[in-house]
Design a protein around this nucleic acid. Structure first.
Lengths: 349, 349
DNA sequence: TTGTACGCGTTATCAT
DNA sequence: ATGATAACGCGTACAA
C-alpha cells in the first residue's frame, strides 16, 4: 500500500512542500484558504507525517521519557497515568521505559536521550547512586520523582526532585503505632540498599523507636532475601511468614509499602491471627487497594496525583526555560483505617 | 554539549562513514581489526546512533506497538510486562500506548503505524467493533489479544487473535456456583457493549443459568452506571452497594473481573455479610492479588504469561513471514479458593 | 504569501 | 574490505 508523503500532498494541491509544512504546523504566514484546501487533501489521502523525519530535522523531538524502576509497585502505575495525561495536554509524546533492577538509570537515560533526541526525563522510583559528574553528562533537564534521598554532596542546582520526606513520614507512622501503645513493632522492608526508599523508611522507623526510648530489635527487622527487593504482595506474604516462624513476639507490623502490607495481612490471617485484634498492621503509599482490603489498611498516603502533576509541570517549565531546578517535598497523610488498634486490647486478648 | 555523529566517528578513525555503519550493524564484510578500532572510538566518544535517522532510512523501524484499552485492569499490567520482556529478547522496541475509552483503536493504530513506521501491532483488551475494510487499511500485521469476540463476518485470514473463550469459561464458573447449590447468583459487570469481554462473560452467565433451568433475574445483573466500564475495585465496590440496597436476595456474586470482586468483597464486609458464609464470591482473570485477599478469591485464571508470550511470538513470526494468521484459544483454569462455599451452608445461617 | 533547495544522520548501492 | 554518494521525509532559510 502506498504511503503519501508531504510531496504528494503538495502536488495534489498544486502548492510547494513548505506551504504544506506550514499548514501542518500551524504557522502564521499562510493563507487560510490554502490551508483549508491542504488540510482537506491530507484528510482525504490519510497522510500522516513521518515522525522520524520530523525529529531528525527538529534536533529535538517533542517528547519526554519516563524511566521507572520497580514497576511491580502499584504506586507507580497511578503516577504514570497522571503523567501521561499531563503530557497529552501539552502535546508531548511520552516514552515509557522500565529499568531492570541491575541497570543504571543514568546510563539508560543517556542512551534514550541520544537515541530519541527528547527534551526531558522523569526518573520514577529507584534509588539515587549517581555521581554528579555522570549526571552532568545528561544534556536535557531531568526530574527525580519519588526516589530515595539524594546525597547532600550533589549540587542542588543541577537537578530537580519531587518527593515526600520518607524518613520523617515513616517515623510519623511509627510514632502513631507507639502512640497506640505498641512497643514490639516489626518492620517489613524489601530493599535496604544505601539511599533507597526502603532504607529511608527503615531509618524513620529507627528514629521513632529511639525517640521513644525503645531499642531496635534486629529480629523484628524483616527483609526479603530474594535480593530483588520487589514491593510485591508475594514478598510481603513470604517475609511475614518467616517472621511468624521465628516466634519473635510483636503486636504491630509496619510494612514500608502497601503491597507488602497486603501480603502480610494474608499471612497473618492464615496463621489464625486477627488484625487488628492480635496484630496491628500499617502500610505506606496509600494505593487505591488499601481502601478495599479487609480490614482496610492504615497507611501513609502520598499525594500521587499532585506529585505526578508537579513533576511534569516542573519538567515542562524547566524545558521552556521558565524555571530553575527545584526541590519540592510533599507531605504524606496518615490515613487511619481498620488495620490498627490500641496495643492494650491486643495484650488483653 | 556536543553530540558526535557517525561522521565524527569516521573522521576520528580515519575511515568512511559506511565502514562505521557496518561496524555498528554487525555487517559481515568488515575487517575485525578496523571494527574493533571503531568500536573503541564509539565507546570513548559516547556516540549513540540517532534513532530517527535510522528509522527514516530503514523505511520500517524495528519496533512494534502495544495498544491497550483499559489500563486500570491489573490483568493487563501483567501481560505488558511479559510482552516487554519478549520484545527485549528480540531487540525490538516497544511503543506502549493507552487508548481512551472513547477512541477507536484502529484509528489510533493507523496513526501510530504511519508516525513511527513500525512493524506490527498488538491490541490488548477492548472490544472488536471494526469493519473489515478498516482493518485492511492497516499495513502491518496485528494480533488481537484478550479482546472481546470477533464477529464471524470478518475474514479469519485477515488477522490473528489470542484469547480464552470468555463465554464458555464464564459459563463454567457459573456452572460451578450452581453446582454448589446456588440459584440466586448476581453478576457484576462493568461494561456490556456489543462484543465486549463483559458482554461475553454475561452471556456465559446466562447460558449456564438457562442450561440449569434457572431464569435470569434482571435485578441481579448489576452494571456500573458511570458508563466508563472500568474494571476497577471502586466500581466493584459501588455497584455491590447498589445491589445490596436493592434488597434483592442472592447467595452468590460473580464478578467478571477480579478487581471488581475485590471491591465487592469490601462492600459485603461493610454490610456485615460473611464471605463465603453468607455470600459466595467468584472473580475472573486470576490476577496475583486474588491470592492475597481475605478470603482468597475463587477465580477463572487466565494463563497470562502463556498468552502474552504466544501473542508476541505469533506477531514476530508473522512479521518475519514465517507464519500465517492464527486464532489460538487458551483454556482458563478454575481456581477454587476460600471465597466460595456450598449454598446449603449459606441458607442455614 | 508562497516556492526552491539544502541538510538533518543514517543505511544501502555501487564502485574501487 | 572499504569509501563515495544517493536517497529517506521533513523543516526552514532564502529568494521571489
Amino acid at each position: 500500500m502506498f504511503e503519501p508523503t508531504i510531496k504528494d500532498i503538495a502536488k495534489m494541491c498544486g502548492v510547494g512542500v513548505s506551504t504544506v509544512s506550514r499548514a501542518i504546523n500551524n504557522h502564521p504566514d499562510i493563507n487560510p484558504e490554502t490551508k483549508e484546501r491542504i488540510m482537506d487533501a491530507i484528510k482525504e489521502s490519510g497522510y500522516v507525517p513521518n515522525d522520524s523525519a520530523r525529529n531528525l530535522k527538529r534536533v529535538d523531538a517533542k517528547a519526554i521519557a519516563v524511566l521507572i524502576k520497580g514497576i511491580s509497585n502499584p504506586f507507580f502505575t497511578s503516577m504514570i497515568k497522571v503523567i501521561e495525561q499531563e503530557c497529552k495536554k501539552k502535546h508531548y509524546a511520552m516514552e515509557l521505559s522500565h529499568i531492570e533492577a541491575d541497570e543504571d538509570e543514568v546510563d539508560v537515560a543517556q542512551k534514550v536521550v541520544k537515541e530519541k533526541r527528547l527534551r526531558g526525563i522523569i526518573f520514577l522510583g529507584g534509588l539515587f547512586s549517581h555521581s554528579e559528574e555522570k549526571l552532568q553528562k545528561l544534556t536535557v533537564p531531568f526530574v527525580f520523582s519519588a526516589v530515595g534521598s539524594i546525597p547532600e554532596s550533589i549540587n542542588k542546582n543541577s537537578y530537580s526532585s519531587i518527593s515526600v520526606d520518607d524518613r520523617k513520614e515513616s517515623a510519623r507512622m511509627v510514632d502513631y503505632l507507639i502512640g497506640l501503645g505498641h512497643t514490639r513493632i516489626a518492620i517489613l522492608i524489601a530493599e535496604a540498599e544505601e539511599q533507597s526508599i526502603g532504607k529511608l523508611r527503615l531509618e524513620g522507623y529507627c528514629d521513632s523507636l529511639k525517640a521513644h526510648g525503645i531499642a531496635v530489635n534486629p529480629k523484628l527487622v524483616c527483609q526479603t532475601d530474594d535480593g530483588l527487593g520487589h514491593f510485591s504482595m508475594e514478598n510481603g506474604y513470604l517475609t511475614t511468614r518467616k517472621l511468624l516462624e521465628s516466634k519473635e513476639p510483636f503486636t504491630a507490623l509496619y510494612a514500608v509499602a502497601d503491597a507488602l502490607a497486603i501480603g502480610a495481612l494474608r499471612a497473618l490471617h492464615e496463621a489464625g491471627l486477627e488484625v487488628p485484634g492480635d496484630v496491628s498492621i500499617a502500610g505506606y503509599d496509600g494505593i487505591d487497594m488499601a481502601n478495599y482490603t479487609v480490614p482496610s489498611l492504615t497507611t501513609m498516603h502520598q499525594p500521587v496525583e499532585e506529585m505526578a502533576k508537579a513533576t511534569t509541570k516542573l519538567l515542562f517549565n524547566i524545558i521552556a526555560g521558565r524555571a530553575e531546578h527545584q526541590h519540592i517535598t510533599y507531605k504524606a497523610e496518615l490515613v487511619i483505617k481498620e488495620s490498627t488498634d490500641y496495643a492494650a486490647r491486643t495484650e488483653k486478648s
